[in-house]
Amino acid sequence: MTGLETEEILSAIVFYLLSGVVVGSSILVITLRNIFRSALFLLLAFFATAGLFITLDAEFIAAVQVLIYVGAIGVLILFAIMLTRRIQDPVAKSTTRSFILGAFVSAAFLFFLILILGKIYLPPFPETGADTEGITKGIGRMLLTYYLLPFEVVSVLLVGALIGAVVIARKEEARGGEPPEVALERERKDREITDSKPDGNGLEQNDRKH
């Protein structure tokens, strides 16, 4: 009736499902008060983005997305949440003081972005052709010929980030020559003092009540 083929309708259904999951879980990431849940929805958004990559014939990128974003970065974020768990307070405000201004600015940004996107015209996707051998071979050739220098720079960057993260996140005491047993003992005493303090920031009382 409208000239639509079954394949087009099916790909539209897949696209709208995946993008709905991406947008919905992104909204939940920034609105949920429990940071652990928003991290899990972040993983869901990454996973659905991998699905979008598959609809764009980028299977290798989808696999990399699942491995690195969902696997590595997701686990890293969950680890960081666990390590800073003690500050979790279910009744605390989750927004900054400049909440209204920030929401207004980003809503205006979205408005103008959609205004601009409505004005542009892009041609539809070209046909892939039957001989799709996958993009992995092409990416590998590209990375080792044309993008060889950026590839090496990225490996240096990753090593630098790794070393920098270890240096930053290492305990202060370990740097000052204090033996680790002494440092641990002192930290345990510190924690006892802060835990037994009745005021602080009010978190301990809440923890006991619930």
Binding site: V22, V23, T95, G102, S106
Partner: peptide, 13 residues
Amino acid sequence: VFCIGLMGVMIRR
């Protein structure tokens, strides 16, 4: 999604 991320950067504490 970009604007949602921008909003998250601006409003989350």
